[in-house]
């Protein structure tokens, strides 16, 4: 993390946005209704009225979760960037470079440690803007590190999933992240720390078939696509149109795979309440929140 990318650039972006008229209004993808930008932002990037959840970045996610929008970045391990020397229409190293430039992230995960409604927590968020949030070695290592941090600091581990599945450009090494992340989940269980998964749009493939479906509690954002096989693959296999609402968060709840469908503005409070119950912590009123001592840079990115 460096000072320039974390602090200065987002501010410049914000200024720029304010001056650009098309960013003043947001069109709802469901209803076509025009909504004032500020109103959507204040509503956690959910369109008031239609309840359409707009995609948000991993950094925005952490900002919404942590008290006063601040946290300590969990440093993520460096990995061999392109183990297979892969290229399809583009070289994988170039794809990685572009994704890093575009998102300011090291890979598809951003992980922070801080307080959520006063309770210390380790929160990991996946970013679909980083090669569809796909799971490769770096993201797998990040997940493992996140779980280790939670165990170290005796906090719950909360993971916001958002991923198209395996990182194809890493071949079978991406498949290996399924057992690797599962090992980390087992360690959380052995440490008796809550592992809460929040499924966001979209969560598919190898991510769903590993850590995303092994939570102690599964929450999901309304309308999120969640599944193992993608809808296109299923349609091609069975040669039928898929029913409405298939593989959506509400469908998964009806089929017993998700505990609660929670709107984004209620997410923080729900995660905090569950964590306090499982950790046998008193409700927030009873304990005066102390500030987290910054052991590293406090991220104030937009």
């Amino acid at each position: 993390m460096n000072w320039i990318s974390d602090v200065v650039r987002p501010r410049i972006k914000t200024l720029f946005k304010r001056e650009t008229p098309e960013n003043l209004w947001i069109k709802c993808p469901d209803t076509g209704q025009m909504v004032f930008h500020k109103e959507v932002e204040a509503n956690h990037w959910v369109i008031p009225g239609s309840n359409h959840h707009l995609p948000i970045t991993a950094v925005q996610r952490l900002k919404l979760m942590f008290d006063s929008g601040t946290w300590i970045d969990v440093p993520l391990p460096e990995v061999e960037p392109d183990p297979l020397k892969f290229r399809d229409s583009k070289r994988y190293v170039d794809r990685l470079r572009e994704a890093k430039a575009k998102t300011g992230l090291q890979d598809a995960f951003k992980i922070g440690f801080g307080r959520v409604d006063g309770l210390p927590m380790t929160v990991a968020a996946q970013d679909v803007n980083f090669i569809t949030g796909s799971l490769g070695t770096a993201a797998g290592e990040a997940f493992v590190r996140g779980a280790e941090t939670a165990i170290d600091k005796r906090t719950p581990f909360v993971v916001f999933t958002a991923s198209g599945g395996a990182r194809m450009q890493e071949g079978v090494l991406s498949l290996m992240q399924m057992p690797r992340t599962t090992i980390a989940v087992r360690r959380l269980r052995q440490a008796k720390l809550p592992y809460i998964v929040v499924l966001t749009h979209p969560t598919t493939g190898g991510v769903t078939a590993s850590y995303a479906m092994l939570g102690d509690v599964h929450l999901a954002e309304p309308g999120a696509l969640i599944g193992f096989a993608g809808p296109r693959v299923i349609e091609q296999t069975i040669r039928e149109k898929l029913p409405d609402g298939f593989q959506r968060a509400e469908y998964l709840k009806d089929h017993g795979m998700v505990d609660m469908v929670v709107s984004r503005p209620d997410m923080k409070a729900t995660v905090a309440r569950l964590s306090r119950l499982l950790m046998k912590a008193p409700p927030p009123e009873a304990s005066a929140p102390e500030p987290v001592e910054p052991a590293g840079p406090i991220d104030t990115a937009a």
Binding site: P179, T182, T208, M213, A229, H255
Partner: peptide, 25 residues
Amino acid sequence: AYPGIEAEERGQAEAIARSTEACLA
């Protein structure tokens, strides 16, 4: 694993994840 409506309905992803976990246990 089979990609079909019923397989998704009954939690294909969860079943696979639990099986990997059972191997590790």
